[in-house]
Design a protein around this nucleic acid. Structure first.
Lengths: 201, 201
DNA sequence: AAAAACATACCGACCGGTCGGTATTTATCT
DNA sequence: AGATAAATACCGACCGGTCGGTATGTTTTT
């Protein structure tokens, strides 16, 4: 990689960083390209050299953000543990996720809001949801196999889990100080598992 | 009420209706006052005769929408039933709520998105959440009293319930065709109750 | 010198809000 | 009851300003 390419990529990432901050702070529409440029310390020419459109940089951010999120969650499952144990462990991670992504949450809402209008945004916003759905469906199925979860429709049960997590996310986004959301997550998963587990009769 | 007042209120509600449609379709920022006027079939003068600001009509819509929602939910609790029965019944209502408010969902997301930036919007958007929290807290407390729910922190449990409902809402908003959300709601409440109920040992 | 990486000046479109004017209804006076 | 004044409801041209995007020039690397 040449010196010039290095420099270019540095500028590119500076612009991305600045755009993320601006979008999170003021929303997509109210963030002007000029504001992004000023925040990044570059000119408009630099911006339009690296991105063809304001919309494009928005999509770039969305992809980067979702990619990272996905990686983090999938890698957090241990193999030797029981399904309920794994789920409980994942609930414990919620607090970390909240803290790590706290300032990106407004951007998240922005994505959702845009996805109603823009099919392109919809695709990559809703896809992860279905992805997690499948992920949890697999877990539930294995739980039923190993006998730790009561037989039932894994699809529906998985949707219930995802719904709970989504709800936690939204509440955490809108009212971060409203509760200890990590604790609520743990309690929620606990109760859900209690309701899903085989009763010893 | 005089003829002139009738006429005025008719135009006013026409503008409100048009604004609701436009905001839901294009979002707050991208909806121009001119577009609202065209959709309502009135002039800009009429608009600014009835509302002082674009922001004001947004708030008017928000208030109207939340008022209706609140009424609907609170009135749906029967007194003679057991707490778990009441909760199950409320879960059954979800389908109706979804169908009734389907085209308003984008507006809902818009409200949330705005609430991150606008404290005024935040107040009246997040307040209902706390309201429902208290509402469910009361129900859980009564459930504990009547012995149908295992003792624990009613606050946290209530937050779990609200989270589940919120998550269902979001998923239903973003992917209405993705599942039979009413069924998921019923199943979710069922599992939660199963986990919360006193085990006969 | 050719190309990449920027900078700057600028354009046309649009938007929220204003304002002077008009038409219709309502109140007041004779 | 008829005339007149006042208030209400509404119209639509217009303005200051912003914004996304472009065209062109300048510097730096290859």
């Amino acid at each position: 990689m040449t010196i010039q390419q290095q420099r270019a990529e540095e500028t590119r990432s500076r612009i991305l960083q600045a755009a993320e901050e601006c979008f999170a702070q003021d929303g997509y529409d109210k963030t002007s390209v000029a504001a992004i440029c000023q925040c990044a310390g570059v000119s408009k020419g630099a911006f339009y050299h690296h991105f063809t459109t304001k919309h494009e940089i928005f999509m770039a951010l969305l992809n980067r953000w979702l990619g990272g999120l996905d990686e983090q969650l999938i890698s957090s499952q241990s193999i030797q543990a029981t399904i309920p144990e794994t789920l409980r462990e994942m609930a414990g991670l919620v607090g970390g996720v909240f803290q790590a992504a706290e300032n990106r949450f407004p951007l998240f809402l922005e994505f959702w809001s845009q996805s109603v209008r823009d099919p392109e945004v919809w695709d990559i916003t809703v896809a992860p949801m279905q992805h997690y759905r499948d992920f949890f469906t697999g877990m539930i199925e294995r739980g039923i196999e190993e006998g730790s979860i009561e037989p039932g429709d894994p699809q529906t049960t998985a949707r219930v889990v995802v719904s709970l997590v989504m709800g936690l996310l939204v509440q955490g986004m809108l009212d971060p100080q409203g509760a200890d959301w990590e604790q609520v997550a743990r309690e929620g998963i606990r109760v859900l598992l209690e309701g899903m587990q085989q009763k010893k009769q």
